[in-house]
Amino acid sequence: MNIFRLAGDMTHLASVLVLLLKIHTIKSCAGISLKTQELFAIVFLTRYLDLFTNFISIYNTIMKLIFLGSSFSIVWYIRRHRVVRRSYDKDQDTFRHFFLMWPCLILAIFINEKFTLKEVMWTFSIYLEAIAILPQLVMLQRTRNIDNLTGQYIFLLGAYRAFYILNWIYRYFTEEHYVHWITWVAGVIQTLLYGDFFYYYFQSWKNNVKLELPA
């Protein structure tokens, strides 16, 4: 474990807590894409298949349970909670996200580190996580009103990925033959997707104006 990875995990944890806090306290999911949350739930489901078979550490297990629990409860809140579901704007959340999953699955079948079910599922989760934010970014462009919590949520998600890239650089230089192109390429692509959002987030923060994404 290194400081970059710990910072990344804590930022990731903060992002899901911010989202849960928003949905649980103000009972609203306005501006939140259910499709992105469903994709994240699938990412954790397919990535943590070895949750009970491959023990890494207490920290690892607890964090996996938190991410699984939080992502599924967010999906439940938006789909099922009698108050929250009313604030879900499905007409704006139109990205065909299941359409995104097939290329990730096919790619995982052809490009992976070991052709076993677990490894293919894990690689699928890496590719899926890279593009899971797309429905949310598309929805933000559409609704254009980004409330603070949603903006912070996306900012934290992007920061978590940026910390992970620093973690990979650190591990590359400190551990013998630590090379994982698949994770690195997918991770860089994922972080770049946030790049555009980061730019406008910082502009709004610097000029102290409300965050607006260009149409």
Binding site: H12, W122, N167, H180
Partner: peptide, 10 residues
């Protein structure tokens, strides 16, 4: 490198 060493990441 064994793929497992990456699996220690979340």
């Amino acid at each position: 490198s064994t793929p497992s060493d990456l699996k220690d990441e979340l």
